[in-house]
Design a protein around this nucleic acid. Sequence first.
DNA 1: GCCGATCTTCGGAGCGCTATGATGATGCGG
DNA 2: CCGCATCATCATAGCGCTCCGAAGATCGGC
Lengths: 349, 349
Amino acid sequence: MPNKSRARRSTQRVTMTDVAKLAEVSASTVSLYLRKPDEVSTQLGQRIQGAIDTLGYVPNLMAGALAAARTRVIGVVVPSMVNAIFASTVNTMQKALGDQGYQLLLGHSDYAEAEEEAVVRTFLSWSPSAMVLTGLNHSRETRRMLSNSDVPVVEMWELGSNPLDTLVGFSHRDVGRAQARHLIKAGCRRIAFIGTRLGVDERAKQRQSGSEEALRDLLGSQHTRVIDCGPGRMAEAASRAFAELLASHPDTDGIVFANDMLALGALGEAQRRGIRVPDDIAMIGFGDMDFSNCTLPPLSTIRPPREEIGEAVARCVLRRIQGRPQETRLDLGFELLPRESSRRVTVDA
Amino acid sequence: MPNKSRARRSTQRVTMTDVAKLAEVSASTVSLYLRKPDEVSTQLGQRIQGAIDTLGYVPNLMAGALAAARTRVIGVVVPSMVNAIFASTVNTMQKALGDQGYQLLLGHSDYAEAEEEAVVRTFLSWSPSAMVLTGLNHSRETRRMLSNSDVPVVEMWELGSNPLDTLVGFSHRDVGRAQARHLIKAGCRRIAFIGTRLGVDERAKQRQSGSEEALRDLLGSQHTRVIDCGPGRMAEAASRAFAELLASHPDTDGIVFANDMLALGALGEAQRRGIRVPDDIAMIGFGDMDFSNCTLPPLSTIRPPREEIGEAVARCVLRRIQGRPQETRLDLGFELLPRESSRRVTVDA
DNA sequence: GCCGATCTTCGGAGCGCTATGATGATGCGG
DNA sequence: CCGCATCATCATAGCGCTCCGAAGATCGGC
């Protein structure tokens, strides 16, 4: 004599059925009201909304996702969350996609393909509506998982060949070129590059080679001094790297930095040592961070299209989800912001 | 004559049943193997694993979550993702909780209760294992939703009364006191406070009142000059605020900043105007950011327990999830880092 | 050799929702 | 005044998994 009603795994959460009961309609109608409000009569709609408010009903997304075989989740992988540069892109995406009822799942790769692979694997088991990755370098397995999954993929913050699907970014090589060209125009002839984690940060590396290219093209085959800051806090590491550079190449008259934080550190060290910027050494950064216009002297830099990337990615994602046609490659460019740190009268005149 | 088998919403994903069929066991056993491998015999275990590998089976988290009525997701709400200060807390949490198989859902409130409420509502519908909020100020509805949900809640980055559940942070009032006391000890007598978004950033406000308290207690009832930077990029806004302060209170000899980025902006402006720091005006910031030790002069500041909070929150969350007893209030303190920007020989001697 | 204890495996009823087709109500032309 | 679209609402069958309880297998002890 088996007991038919075995112990239910009670959840005592308010369910759609509870709302339906209170509003005296069927659960289907509640579901319909929630998904397509204008296919339900105003009268019922109000009654349902009332019930929802009274009960404090919160839909169970799991159940919805399971039934509909999709989630309104978009997986986003950035190299680092600490890096403010990606933060504002993510912020913009959040805004644009949040408005459309999408939820961002945020993960970071720590600039490592293996980490990225793990994050992508996890995210994919959420059946996301789309995936957004940073850059074009991914492990073979990551690429396989993504192409097998038929989830729309957008790669951002870089331009290059063999994108998985859609690509939104700008050319870091061109950035490097522009940085070096700018310093050369300002009269620098012995230009160094200071970066950090060049071994893993593919985009920084691209900027570096762009910069080297420009040196070669414009100054002839010029020896390039590249310094990779050690670990530790960026600005402090840059102080040390700068000191190191002065020791090994005292004749340096211009520095391209992989980012503004490094430049800030060097700028401080320069002042401490009585080195005049830009007269003794000109400097240009990358990122146009919050403080870049307030350093002493104000830092010349490159403004990457941070927010623009976020917006464009959001737009692409939405179009892909809706199956509408769209561009698969977007070059958003960048902007050179010349400021005091590279303004040398000598040659401008 | 209704057709019994209506069109199935085919999903052609590999399911647990497929694995079970291939391994010639029941689906329950596959499920058991996945959840508690050592309750299944080695032989079957291997057969099942083989089938999983052959088919490339990826479990459907949605289905699992629905059935088990829980997810391995932890909702985290910070005021702003752009703020590097929270980034490192989140980073630490990510690491600690990720190791335990939990996934962080990250959202931001933009310092607004209404935004926070929306985010919390969304997150709750994922039935998270726990929720982590920043600060103690939440809308009535937010508090209601959270307490109704029986989801463990941790509030962080603040200390105070009436926590929802567990509290991990430090006293911002004490920070403000320490900042002001430090400047007073350094000989400052006419101390100002420069902050931003004081109307909405509850913790900055607490630091401000702490600072005022110290001024009252140590210097007698002293007029306090509080400047709330306008909108825009922080460092630039701080330059302007600093200029404003100099105009309205030219006798100011010490400034407490709500964060290091503001101090950086003011530091630049001071140099530009030939104001000597710390001799003319001493400064102290908050946050101990990347660059704080590289400014000119190096910036005295307060190091909040960023990573420590992340670790403690992770620990609390895990304990609460496992139902183990734990503290409900953790004061992690902070550290005063005295540097050049407030070192005045006059009084130290 | 039989019975209960122990361990492994399995059957199947949900979890809360969506989506499809059915059903009843309404309106309108003929 | 009837038949037939048209529209709003509903009943119901899953989505893929977990977990309860039961069945089968194995093993000692008396």
